[in-house]
């Protein structure tokens, strides 16, 4: 990732990481159980490296250095080996990310259909560049290679949901909706 996160943003996120999501340098029973479930599908423990990273990321939101060490320990692989795997996948986050990770498709068809304009709009509305997270910890913006929905371009993926035929209006609607959703949640 060629983008950077502002130092104060990381600070905000790291403070948040001291909550229930963070388990420090060892894996909890639930995480271990989720990883154990994967072993039967592969020939050796090391082969579940990506699955393990994904499982733990689901619990903790991202993979900190401590988390990486803990997983490596559990799998019996070296931390550098695990790091070499973690860093080759865009969906494994080695930095804190927001509640909503926006994967904006930047591939050829989406580019022809105007994704640069949409990116500018998102950057303006959220006040961040790709690779950054809003100071409130709500949104992370990432550019992504082709999402394979080119006949409905431009598109983005947020969580497990595809957003298709995007326009500036649709993006505004999306941002408002998510902000409201998270405000309601924290009010509960």
């Amino acid at each position: 990732m060629s983008s950077t996160i502002a130092a104060d943003t990381i600070e905000v996120m790291e403070q948040q990481d001291t909550g229930p999501r963070s388990a420090g340098r060892s894996l909890n029973a639930e995480e271990k159980r989720d990883i154990d479930r994967e072993f039967s599908h592969y020939e050796d423990r090391g082969s579940v490296a990506l699955e393990a990273l994904r499982v733990v990321q689901k619990h903790r939101g991202w993979i900190s250095d401590d988390t990486l060490y803990a997983i490596a320990d559990y799998l019996g692989v070296s931390p550098t080996q695990l790091e070499s795997i973690a860093t080759c996948y865009q969906l494994i986050f080695r930095q804190p990310v927001g509640e909503e990770v926006i994967l904006l498709c930047k591939s050829s068809s989406c580019w022809i259909m105007g994704c640069e304009k949409l990116q500018r709009h998102l950057e303006q509305q959220l006040g961040i560049r790709p690779g950054q997270t809003t100071p409130d910890g709500l949104f992370t913006l990432l550019e992504t290679p082709c999402l394979g929905d080119c006949d409905k371009a431009p598109v983005m993926l947020v969580g497990e949901e595809m957003h298709r035929h995007l326009s500036a209006d649709k993006l505004d609607e999306f941002i408002q909706e998510k902000k409201k959703h998270h405000a309601d949640q924290s009010a509960d």
Binding site: S107, S108, S109, P145, C146, G148, D149, C150, D151
Partner: peptide, 11 residues
């Protein structure tokens, strides 16, 4: 692992 830019058939 369909990721070739402009490809959406396997999906």
């Amino acid at each position: 692992d369909e990721m070739e830019p402009g490809t959406f058939k396997d999906r």
